[in-house]
Design a protein around this nucleic acid. Structure first.
Lengths: 198, 198
DNA sequence: ACAGGTTGGCTAGCGCTGCTAGAATTCGTG
DNA sequence: CACGAATTCTAGCAGCGCTAGCCAACCTGT
C-alpha cells in the first residue's frame, strides 16, 4: 500500500508542477507562449506526460484558472471587509477586481476570457469560482433596490467590470481614465438603490 | 492608363471578394474555421495572393471588423431614433447592441473581442468605428448628470454591454436572464441622472 | 538474488497552422 | 512574334496540439 501512495503522491506533485509551470510561463510571456512543448521542457518531462495528467492544453488552463479564482476571492474579500459603508464596499470590490485583472492578466484571461471548458453558472462550478462570485454578491446585495434580484444585479455589475477590463486590455479603451470610468460605474450602481449612503 | 485602371479595379474587386469570403466563412463556421488555405480555396486563388492584399490574417479580420462597425452603427441609429425619451433611447440602443452581437457573433468578435490591430481610441480610428461609438454617445449623453463626462460615461456603458455579451457568449453567464440584466443595467444608468424620465 | 510482468515515459510522427522564397506563367509591348 | 515585366503558383519552413507504439525501469514472487 505504501508504494502505491508514494506513487500517487509523486503524481500529484508533478501535476502541481505542471500547473505552476504553466501559470508562471503564462504570467511571464502570455498564454501564446505556453505551448505543450515549452511546458514539457519546463517541467523536464516529455510532452505526452502532460496528457497523462490533463485531457489537453485547455484543461491545464482551467486548473490555472481555478487557482486564480481562489486568489481573486481572497483579494475581493479583503477589499470588501476593509471598506466602510455600502458604497465604499462596492467601490473597493470593483477596484480590487480590476486591479487583479491588470496585475495578473494571464490569470484573468484563463479565468474569464479564453475558451477553457469550466462549468460556470451551475452547481458544478468549482468552489473557488463560486467563492469569487460570492464576494461580488456580498458587495452588490446591500445596494440592490427592493425588487431587484441580487444575483442578477451582481452578474450585471460583474459584466460591467469585465467589459472595462477586456476593452482596456485589448487596447480598445485607453488606460488613462480607467479610474474615472470605474467611479462612474460604481456610482451609477449605488444610485440605482435610490437611497445611496456615503 | 486604361489598362492600369482596369488592373486596379480588378484588384479592388478581388480584395472585396477576400473580405466577403472571410466574413461569410467566419459567420458560418466561426473564425477558427477561417484559415488562409480555406480562404484561398474559397476565392479560387492560391494562398500568397492573400498576402499581396493584406499584411496577414489579422489584417483581413480588421477589414471585416470595419464592415461590421458600419452595420452596427446603422442598427444603433435606427434603434435610437425610433425610441421615445431618454430612457427609451438608451434601452433601445443597449438592446440593439446586444442583439447585434448575438445575431452576428463572428462579426462582433472581429470588432471587439479578438486581437486585430485596429486603432481604437485615437483620431486614426476608422470612420465606421467612430460612427458606431457616436451612436452610443448620442444615446448616453442625454442621461449624463451635471458633472459627468459624456464620453467616459459612454465608454462605461459600452464596456458594460460588452461584458454582458462576452460573458454570455463564453458560457460564463446563462443566456436565460439576459433581458433582465440588460434592463437592470439601463435602469441604473438612467437612475444616475437623478431626474430620470419615462 | 534473480526472472516475469506491468506500469509508465519517451521517440517519432500526423495533420494542421500562418507565412514566404523562388520558380513558372501570363500579359503588355516593341 | 519575341522579349521584358508583372503576377500567380508550387513547394516548403517552423511551429502547433495531440497520439501511437516502442522501450526501459520498476515492483513482485520465487
Amino acid at each position: 500500500m505504501s508504494i502505491q501512495t508514494r506513487r500517487e503522491r509523486e503524481r500529484a506533485e508533478r501535476e502541481r508542477l505542471i500547473v505552476t509551470a504553466a501559470r508562471e510561463l503564462a504570467e511571464a510571456e502570455g498564454w501564446d507562449a505556453v505551448t505543450t512543448r515549452r511546458l514539457a521542457a519546463e517541467i523536464e518531462y516529455s510532452q505526452p506526460v502532460l496528457y497523462s495528467h490533463f485531457k489537453g492544453k485547455t484543461a491545464i488552463m482551467a486548473a490555472v484558472a481555478v487557482q486564480g479564482c481562489a486568489e481573486m476571492a481572497v483579494e475581493l474579500r479583503t477589499a470588501r471587509t476593509a471598506a466602510k459603508g455600502r458604497h465604499g464596499a462596492l467601490a473597493a470590490v470593483g477596484e480590487a477586481y480590476t486591479a487583479f485583472a491588470r496585475r495578473r492578466p494571464a490569470l484573468y484571461d484563463a479565468m474569464f476570457t479564453l475558451r477553457v471548458d469550466l462549468p460556470f453558472a451551475t452547481p458544478e462550478a468549482p468552489a473557488a469560482l463560486q467563492e469569487a462570485f460570492g464576494e461580488l454578491l456580498a458587495a452588490v446585495e446591500p445596494i440592490a433596490a427592493e425588487g431587484d434580484d441580487p444575483g442578477l444585479l451582481t452578474e450585471t455589475y460583474w459584466a460591467a467590470l469585465h467589459g472595462l477590463v477586456t476593452l482596456m486590455r485589448s487596447g480598445r479603451l485607453p488606460e488613462r481614465a480607467h479610474q474615472r470610468r470605474l467611479e462612474l460605474l460604481t456610482r451609477h450602481f449605488t444610485a440605482g438603490a435610490q437611497r445611496a449612503g456615503a
